[in-house]
């Protein structure tokens, strides 16, 4: 198992290296001279030359990359041009908000997706299976920003039950925090619920056809015991792994959801940065999300190895 994990860790190195190259190269796509962009209104050649020296823009690309990655390794993601604060501080401030949202979304997705998937597999080829499948496809096909707008229209504008925007930290007021995040969490979890439902259904169908379920049936166990204790328990491993992997997708979806519900998280940070041409922040956010995704991938692998004794050689 140690050998397997070490191999997996070694494989991460080139991936992380390429991620950093991609993110570094993003800046090279900027139309025009970055020094001119940074100088803004000030077109004094002296100032521009100074900026070029300061940010090492006068150096060849590989050297610029080495300086940039050296900073990244020690946690220096650069400075926000607009807010004049380190990008790492901004990331640390906004990340917990998005993590709260993503965690709630995972709970929503697991609750809906796994329940619907089990139901669909148990009632295979019945009208329930058909309806659940259609609903899952609808969930996957609904753009989350539109779903968000529709929920605001219903629950905030028409019924007045939930606040349309804003965010309260759970450490300040837990009840209020749940009220402000329940709609965005549902919006974010909705598409994932559709994906999880499909995977749960497939995993459950496979489990229901297996020898150990047949043995459980032969022993005369009740249907509920067979489904919950035998089939679902075995089907859950791939579902949890998938859930971990989809966390990255949730971070992506949070961009629009946070924008609609005006939640001051990671997604809103990147959108604001895009519009203010604060490229260091954009790079920092992409780097942190990609690294989080890679680490989650690794954790999912470890979880998989721990859950399946056959992989622990």
């Amino acid at each position: 198992m140690v050998a397997l994990l070490s191999r997996r860790l070694l494989q991460l190195i080139p991936t992380v290296f390429f991620v950093s190259v991609i993110i570094f190269l993003l800046q090279q796509l900027l139309p025009g001279d970055p020094a001119l962009v940074m100088a803004g209104e000030d077109r004094d050649p002296e100032v521009i030359a100074q900026i070029r020296r300061m940010y090492r823009l006068d150096q060849p690309l590989p050297i610029q990359y080495l300086y940039w990655i050296k900073g990244v390794i020690v946690g220096d993601l650069g400075e926000s041009m607009r807010l004049k604060v380190p990008v790492s501080d901004l990331v640390l401030e906004k990340l917990p908000v998005t993590l709260q949202l993503a965690t709630m979304a995972i709970i929503v997705a697991l609750a809906i997706g796994v329940t619907a998937g089990v139901l669909s597999a148990v009632k295979r080829d019945s009208w329930i299976d058909y309806v659940v499948n259609v609903l899952s496809l609808c969930g996957i096909s609904t753009p989350n920003f539109w779903l968000g707008i529709m929920l605001i229209l219903l629950f905030s504008v028409q019924l007045g039950w939930l606040p349309a925007s804003g965010y309260v930290s759970p450490f300040e007021n837990l009840g209020q925090s749940l009220l402000t995040t329940i709609m965005p969490a549902f919006v974010l979890g909705n598409a994932l619920a559709g994906v999880l439902m499909r995977h749960t259904r497939a995993a459950m169908l496979q489990a229901m056809d297996s020898d150990y379920v047949r043995t459980a049936k032969a022993k005369g166990l009740s249907n509920t015991a067979i489904i919950v204790k035998h089939a679902l328990r075995n089907a859950l491993t791939p579902i949890i792994t998938l859930g971990a992997l989809e966390f990255g997708t949730l971070l992506s979806g949070a961009v629009l959801t946070e924008q609609i519900f005006t939640i001051p998280g990671f997604g809103k940070l990147i959108v604001d940065a895009v519009f203010n041409r604060d490229y260091a922040v954009v790079q920092g956010v992409v780097l942190v999300t990609a690294t989080t995704y890679i680490l989650l991938n690794l954790l999912a692998d470890i979880g998989y190895i721990l859950a399946d004794p056959r992989l622990r050689k």
Binding site: I22, P31, L251, S252, I270, V282, V286
Partner: peptide
């Protein structure tokens, strides 16, 4: 692998913003 590690929409937004 590296490109797949960057969440789809975030990478698309970053690319569109830089372009």
């Amino acid at each position: 692998d590296a490109m797949l590690a960057c969440p789809f929409l975030i990478l698309a937004i970053a690319l569109a913003a830089f372009l």
